[in-house]
Design a protein around this nucleic acid. Structure first.
Lengths: 226, 226
DNA sequence: TCCTCGACGATCAGGATGCGCATGGAGGGG
DNA sequence: CCCCTCCATGCGCATCCTGATCGTCGAGGA
């Protein structure tokens, strides 16, 4: 899952970035509204953390522009404490959730998880597909109840697929959501990790759709094979 | 485990802080409601001890604000008198337990322990993971029944992991819950203590998940990895 | 229907990177 | 005075990426 943080205060921004990265997200950080808006418009994010108190362009304006452009990613707005007007205006502008500064990083992470989960249409923090179960809260994966050890990248890849269960996900889409800005897009790393995951979870977990990408199906919901 | 004490009387506050620290908690002390509220909103606490008779802002108000902001840590309220009205109001405001002044520090610690235990979803004061057993009441750790001597920090670290058994805990999360406010976050102390604990309890007690953090698994519940 | 060929995906092994581990020593507190 | 805590350094290894090779699928023609 890839996150954009738009936060003008460098210290807080960097701290957030590193915390989120430790939690398995790919994170881009922008420190002003204009740059932030550009990133949000051009790159693919699964969620955006947006500070309202930005220099130059206001956070609300940025949010409004995104929504007008049709960007649909969930936005978590950081507002100064007690500003009800901000809250209302933010809702109108299309924010999905709020957090008043100051806040606890754990809560931020929890809300972020919830946002991403909701955005992908899931209701529980546990995602399942056949014998595979992924708990987004504890960050663990089990196969038939047995815990499976995944590396960071393997987890990111599997997590994205499970959040989009049944959908065909192209390789570029995966790259855009698993890695942050600076990454060489011409490589076969995705294939490599797909192979790895198949080795650990079974070959039939991830289906290849030639020329299009990959898809993770739930055999319980789709009894017949292909 | 990290505790916040909000207590206006300096003597009592300091005494509590030192007592709790001797019992293996990381403690922040605040002497007025405003500061206390701020700390509780920004930092990560596993429990809060809140005196109701505060100057400026009342303890109940502070508690109410926290709950309205969505802070979920358990709160142990200290009330000066045997006043029922305080108790009722406190319950409404979201307190989890009570203690009437004057009280025995022993009792305070016992209740605190119970609060933290409940908050982490454990039912017993004894936490076990494989051959390792940790008694939160006596603060003792045994390996295959044999008592093991842990230093204060080693105990704190192990305790936090055991309270969150099975969850992947990032290094920042550990730092936030084991140390109090003023601590340099860029250091490798966590690794050092993990190493120490492994030496004393066996290398397989704590699992490393590269790039994400550590996790303490219970082999009884999860027979084997890979 | 079968064969051929092209294109795409899977797999493997080698190597760079950086994370986490170990260790020793300085500093501080009991 | 001793032990605990913390910081710094160097090292080893898991992890990740790369590039090459092998395998597979499917279209089109005979």
């Amino acid at each position: 899952m890839r996150i954009l943080i738009v936060e003008d205060e460098p210290t807080l921004g960097k701290q957030l970035k590193s915390t989120l990265e430790q939690n398995g997200y790919a994170v881009d950080l922008s420190t002003d509204g204009e740059d932030g808006h550009f990133l949000g418009s051009t790159e693919e994010y699964d969620a955006v953390i947006l500070d309202l108190g930005l220099p130059e362009i206001d956070g609300l304006t940025v949010l409004g522009m995104w929504r007008k452009e049709g960007r649909k990613f969930p936005v978590l707005v950081l507002t100064a404490r007690d500003s009800w007007s901000d809250k209302v205006a933010g809702l109108d502008a299309g924010a999905d959730d709020y957090l008043a500064k100051p806040f606890q990083t754990e809560e931020l992470i929890a809300r972020l998880r919830a946002l991403i989960r909701r955005a992908s249409g899931n209701t529980s923090s546990e995602l399942t597909a056949g014998p595979v179960r992924l708990d987004t809260r504890s960050g663990r994966v089990t196969l038939d109840g047995e815990p499976v050890k995944l590396t960071a990248q393997e987890y990111k890849l599997l997590s994205y697929l499970m959040h989009h269960k049944g959908k065909v996900v192209s390789r570029t889409e995966l790259i855009e959501h698993i890695y942050d800005q600076d990454f060489d897009r011409d490589s076969n790393t995705i294939e490599v990790f797909v192979t790895r995951i198949r080795k650990k979870l079974g070959a039939d977990v991830i289906t290849t759709i030639r020329g299009l990408g990959y898809s993770l199906d739930d055999p319980d919901e789709q009894p017949r094979a292909n």
